[in-house]
Design a binder for these strands. Structure first.
Lengths: 334, 334
DNA sequence: GTGAAAGCGCTAACAG
DNA sequence: CTGTTAGCGCTTTCAC
């Protein structure tokens, strides 16, 4: 590494380190001429301020951490993209860590980010997160945290999310109004509140229309295989089902795969509905009806909130829940 | 922030800072009892070593930077995932930056990573990168850089890539052997070497089979819209085409969309082939023939190479090109 | 307008 | 086995 330091410049110019520092930072006290020479030599030597030293002395870095279940999921990739864009524009750098849906790894990552003295952390919980005490603890230690999408229930913090209950309710009501009655719900892990809420929305929609006895949930994960297996079970057991409402798009896609294998016609024999509006839902055949969840915007909003929190230095920890709108996208599968 | 320091512990225990440091780091010289008390109080106070200070004094951080065109592209999301997994296991943290395919932003990001004193950088070039002098410069300054996928031609450095020429040649030969003759190639920006190579592979395959006069390339970007527009042009001009070979999957997907809109049957009227094996290619109708490019593995391999380079501290800059195998995936679209 | 000195939190000689 | 000292590169009082 090159490692030109302030001292190098100072020695070369036979002035003090502090003058160089001030000149480079545009301090008003410094003579214009001095500034000029300093900047020039800095350029010539290809000087790069050592951010690490600066962070140490400022006791604060310009890095924000992200913890998501999996980077390669379209939803999270888009969210990260939104976060990175905001961060970049505000002079922050983004550290990405994935929990791979494992609680332990989530905690280790969180700790590592904290230890790295990031200015703040953006989190979407893993599906195996059984308690959020550690988040709560660090929050109280003064770490800036903003949760997005998969947010915890009983922590007072900033959260950026959608109205999962209402979105789900609306989606299922749409199905019912279309005439579907035997609607099965492929639910996600009940540890995740968004899954509980989506399930509750489904159940209430059914109940509201007098279809309580048709309520049927199959709990699985948030992944494709889960949908695939669920459909296999449903039709092995000869259940009568005329519509499937999946907790998210990957699960719906898994279901779609199996339905196609079984040569079950969509939507004629069984309707299928996802959740998230992954780009893929528009490209499969039939195109999937789903609910649009603004991933990129959620990332952006969460990052803005976090940076605000960091820069206000409030440490107020005040709860601030932002609900972003969703929109049902009606397509061919229902 | 909590900010318990070594000094706090030292004062509390009435011992020196260095003893605390050594105790915590498991230095063999330290008495077992001392270690015990120190560790205990550290735990009680919830001490977290300040990595920033440690990096400053070690003149080296445990962070590796990534610069990719766009995080939300399935290929890069998978690659990042692979990188993160390796990094995590080897005790590194990953900083992600996206160029959004802009040369300027790429340079700024590179600079920012350098300034942040990352231990090394993993790069996949943007499609507008006109020269790679700055990479070369920093490489010579001693920055560890490993390129992957979209690698530069005339820089001596570690690169992880595929054999784009051969993969493309094989793919096109397959089309020709299937009986297609009027094969058009939707090429990517010629600034990207991988695009040049894929184009060259296409042209040579055609020439080898005596189809020189049917060679036809339409240059565009690496994005969906590019494929969409290209197909529009082709059929507006009434060109006779019986197969389309796209530079990558997003472009192929764009082409697919337009072909469907035009009610052109695939593969009966026109065959379609992509490149990369994005998950989506298996879900569209018809399923797309494509060439598998091991994104996750490329990320893993690149990260391993980089960490090796970092830890060997060789600074040798020796060129080391790793070619990962690809595999054609034959599906319904051809 | 500029310099000297201290300190951010840590590690690592060098002494004992 | 433990303490003292110095220094990583930077910013920032406090002097002059």
């Amino acid at each position: 590494m090159n490692n030109i330091t302030l001292k190098n410049i100072a020695d070369l110019l036979d002035i003090s380190v502090s003058t160089v520092s001030r000149a480079l930072n545009g301090h008003p006290d410094i003579h214009a001429d001095t500034k000029k020479v300093v900047n020039q030599t800095a350029q010539e030597l290809n000087y790069h301020p050592n951010i690490v030293a600066r962070s140490l002395q400022a006791k604060r870095s310009n890095q924000i951490g992200i913890i998501v279940p999996e980077i390669k999921h379209a939803f999270f990739a888009s969210a990260i993209s939104g976060i990175e864009d905001v961060a970049y524009n505000r002079g922050y750098t983004v550290i990405v860590a994935q929990s791979n849906e494992e609680f332990e790894r989530e905690k280790i990552n969180l700790n590592s980010l904290y230890t790295n003295r990031v200015a703040g952390v953006l989190v979407s919980l893993s599906e195996t997160t059984i308690d959020t005490d550690y988040f709560d603890f660090l929050l109280k230690e003064g770490l800036n945290i903003v949760f997005f999408d998969r947010t915890p229930e009983n922590i007072e913090a900033c959260k950026v999310q959608i109205d999962d209950y209402q979105s789900s309710l609306t989606a299922v009501e749409y199905l019912i109004n279309k005439g579907y009655k035997k609607i099965v719900h492929l639910a996600g892990p009940k540890k995740l509140r968004i899954c509980q809420l989506r399930k509750q929305g489904y159940e209430d929609a059914m109940a509201n229309k007098g279809l309580e006895e048709n309520i049927k949930c199959i709990e699985g994960s948030m992944h494709e295989t889960s949908g695939y297996n669920a459909v296999e079970n449903i039709f092995n057991n000869g259940s009568m089902v005329d519509a499937i409402f999946a907790v998210n798009d990957p699960v719906a896609i898994g279901a779609l795969k199996k339905l196609k294998e079984l040569k079950i016609k969509i939507p004629d024999e069984v309707a299928l509905m996802g959740f998230s509006n992954n780009p893929i839902t528009e490209l499969v055949d039939p195109k999937l009806t789903t609910t649009e969840q603004p991933a990129y915007e959620m990332g952006k909003k969460a990052a803005e909130l976090l940076i605000e929190q960091i820069e206000s230095n409030s440490n107020s920890n005040e709860e601030n829940i932002v609900i972003l709108p969703t929109k049902m996208i009606k397509r061919e599968s229902t």
